[in-house]
Amino acid sequence: MNRRKYAFLIMTLPAVLLFFTFHTYPALQGIFYSFTDWHGYGPWTFVGLKNYINVFQDDRALHAYLFTFKFAITTTIIVNVFSLLIALGLNSKIKGRNFFRGVYFLPNILSVLIVGFIFNYIFAHILPQMGNSLHLKFLAKNILGDPNLAWIGIVIVAAWQSIAFNTILYLAGLQTISSDIYEASSIDGAGKWREFWSITFPLIAPFFTINMVLALKNFLMVFDQIMAMTGGGPGESTESISYLIYNGGFSGGEFAYQSANAVIYFIVIVLVSIIQLRILQRREVEM
């Protein structure tokens, strides 16, 4: 039995050590540097909480938080609503179901960066051209050039890609519901709307929870789309936190300062995740 114990230990220890070395250790380093004035090179000294105090006074950082959350929450809601609708559609009686399922999943396998480049072109050239020929004023300009609309462009691209994965998860959830339940309810004469809210939705609630949590977490990390489409502009209207930390940390020579920003970001993410899980799980139980 001792040998078995030993074997289990050997199975885990190396991996855990590696995980510590390449994940936890750099994270601790990041926390450490956040109390220094290091540029990423050259000498440094301890500066205490100065970086943290500065982050709280930094409009640019504050704005990045606002943008990131605005973007993440909107996209999470849009993605979940649309993927649930599409999943319901794909689960109903239509021709070529497998074909359409394949099509709707397709965006998920594509590179976020390249999709960003493609949409960048669509926003800059195709849509304004359409807008001009159809005399639609709101389309005639590149929405990525408008500080009030640019974030919507990024929402569209992120949603276009992410709907794929969530649709498939919802579809899987819907397929676990046996048709007997529906038959019973249709005898009762329940309408489609009521049928959805009283039968379908409660049964796929766990999928809803997972999708909401994962989607929000992913969208809070938004980076590739920003790199591909706006570079944080126009103005600073689409600077996400990840982008700000990358850009400021390396090019601005603010390694230590942005490390402090990253630590704050970490705390925020943990809080958000805990709150979200609590709320969603309570809902699940209630239903």
Binding site: F22, P26, I241, G249, S259, F266, I269
Partner: peptide, 27 residues
Amino acid sequence: FYKFLYYYLVSAMFIPFPIIMLPIVKQ
């Protein structure tokens, strides 16, 4: 011990990559 490992590894999911980004480049 293993329970701790499990939670240690899984909870790392909540650590945003940017906090690792700068140090890991150096490392």
